[in-house]
């Protein structure tokens, strides 16, 4: 798995390939302008970028939660295990093994923690015992959830809710989890804890992750490969290590400036934009 760069070809036998998609909301607002990326089986891939760069939209295009928000993939293709999935319904995709954990956690507030988890297994047809054993598995990763299994999810802490939403996704037995902004609103220690669990899930359970993050630092430490999005385009991609050593990434996303400031004129488009926003 040393080289995870997207290779050429039509992606027939690849795990998850997004090629050149355009997404339009409400028939007028163009949000993604040709995003391509590839997620290898068993990989952890990070989608990085600022607010409004198109990270969430990319994830929702894959899970097809876009349609509920009047969004639409108008160009390009999304293939999962060789099959085009652009027109599939979200519940069909969950059954095929693609589950999204939405930004802002989205737990079922009035349901208990355990009911939340069980709802995650809604699409499964492999029986009560299998679901029960997965419930135990989730509890073994998220011990805090077990302690709070009978409380209403709305009354648990932010960290617990984030764990719950990841645990709920796991209950569907996914092969890939699209994890949107898991660090949002959490203390650094908790962020670390959650990423540790992601890593363990990836290594021990073989779950593939595609995660969108603004916290570039953490994301690049745990991901193997990264894509940087800006205003609906991929502007850079590479191994996590390469990215975190890249001067531009360091300056704009990691907040470390190695060299002296150059003139604005020399800066590439995406960097200039960044300065303006900063």
């Amino acid at each position: 798995m040393s080289d995870q760069a997207p290779s050429s070809g039509n992606g027939e036998d690849k795990f998850l390939v997004v090629s050149n998609i355009e997404v339009i909301y409400d028939h007028v607002i163009l949000v993604l302008k040709g995003v391509s990326l590839e997620v290898p089986e068993g990989g952890v891939v990070a989608l990085l970028g600022a607010n409004g760069a198109g990270k969430t939209t990319t994830l929702k295009a894959i899970s097809n939660l876009l349609r509920a928000e009047r969004g639409e993939v108008t160009k390009g293709s999304i293939r999962f295990k060789g099959e085009s999935i652009a027109k599939r319904s979200p519940n069909d995709l969950v059954q095929r093994g693609i589950v999204q954990v939405m930004e802002g956690r989205h737990c079922f507030e009035h349901l208990t923690v355990e009911d939340n988890l069980l709802t995650g297994a809604y699409t499964r047809k492999d029986g009560r015992e299998a679901i029960q054993s997965d419930l135990d598995l989730v509890y073994s990763y998220f011990t805090r959830l077990k302690e709070r299994r009978k409380s209403q999810a709305g009354y648990t802490s932010g960290g617990e809710q984030q764990m719950l939403s990841v645990g709920r996704a796991l209950m569907a037995r996914p092969s890939v989890i699209l994890l949107d902004e898991p660090s949002m609103g959490l203390a650094p220690q908790l962020v670390e804890e959650i990423f540790e669990i992601v890593k363990r899930l990836n290594e021990n359970e073989g779950v593939t992750f595609l995660l969108a993050e603004q916290n570039t630092n953490v994301a690049l430490r745990y991901a193997k490969y990264g894509y940087i999005l800006e205003t609906g385009r991929v502007v850079m991609d590479g191994d996590a290590k390469t990215l975190s050593e890249n001067e531009d990434v360091k300056e704009f996303y990691l907040g470390i400036s190695g060299e002296r400031r150059k003139s604005f004129r020399e800066i590439k488009h995406y960097r200039r934009r960044k300065r303006w926003l900063a």
Binding site: S63, C107, F108, E109, L111, T119, T123, A169
Partner: peptide, 13 residues
């Protein structure tokens, strides 16, 4: 679940 959060319900299938 649907009563609580449509979107989340969609996301779990």
């Amino acid at each position: 679940a649907v009563a609580d959060d449509h979107q989340a319900a969609l996301s779990v299938g």
